[in-house]
Design a protein around this nucleic acid. Structure first.
Lengths: 152, 152
DNA sequence: ATGACTGCAAACTCTTTGCACAACA
DNA sequence: TGTTGTGCAAAGAGTTTGCAGTCAT
């Protein structure tokens, strides 16, 4: 039971990636990384700031943005542009899509069917044939969430 | 040859719709409507303002936004949220999607396959089953446009 | 010690709001 | 004439930038 690595320390994981790129291991990076793992839900920069401020009271929004941008480059989060409000950062890396409520702005995950996935890959291939080097497809369903529909 | 309506006057069309809702026929509405017909391409509010300013020098951005919002309600344009920049207003009402260049922000149309359309409708139906009243599906392919790829 | 990273403040872009005047019906 | 729509100015949300100081290496 000594070299148990069944559930690797997420910090250690991040530290490895940062070291591998000669980037510095700093408190904001560690704390934000933990937050993303704990929430496992797309969050806005503001939400990250508020949540992280409990641990690092001095955290600044520019640092949050810089860190999330870095994490995006590292493949730790994905930017999600859904609806008109703030950009979301999604710790779910696997292929999935989003619903956005036209009324309250709420954004939820939604897993596409295999057929959708195939059709999107075909669409990317088609775009490439036209000279556009597609590297990602995002689907956003808009409408009314259950709560807003009940309230109206 | 008197009652020729083969190519109905777009102004007359808009005027009819406005009258039908007891809305007023004003210069900004007519001129912006014409612009959208002429361009037949998704435009930003800023682009509309610049283009319309040639005809109506005093046009204001709030009026442009108000008019585009009205046109959206009337089903004349569709809001397109693609990439990080400004919202686009698309005079193409029929179902189609968009590519957005990660480098220059350029947005282009792209027609999905029937398979994609079917898969999206299935996705909407699935979301409805989960309580989300989906009424639209938008696909955005991100990547590098031909120009930006050539330049890199 | 050195340079990357942070925090602060300020700027910037896009969009909306409040209010008085103009103009459509 | 009575509103509806417009223009102006200003505010607002979200994000980025510049710079001085701090801290990981």
């Amino acid at each position: 039971m000594s070299t148990a690595v069944h559930r690797p320390d997420p910090d250690a994981e991040l530290i490895g990636v940062l070291r591998g790129r000669s980037l510095r291991v700093t408190s904001p990076r560690l704390v934000i990384h933990r937050l993303l793992r704990d929430r496992d839900r797309h969050v806005t920069a503001d939400e990250v700031r508020d949540a992280v401020a409990e641990t690092l009271p001095g955290i600044s929004l520019p640092t949050v943005y810089a860190t999330l941008e870095l994490f995006e480059e590292l493949g730790i989060v994905r930017r999600v542009q859904a609806g008109g409000g703030a950009v979301r950062y999604d710790p779910r890396i696997d292929t999935h899509h989003h619903t956005v409520c036209r009324s309250c702005g709420r954004v939820e995950d939604f897993d596409g069917s295999d057929a959708l996935q195939t059709a999107l890959m075909d669409a990317e291939a088609g775009a490439r044939r036209d000279g556009f080097a597609a590297d990602g497809a995002a689907v956003v369903l808009s409408g009314l969430c259950a709560d807003c529909r009940a309230a109206s």
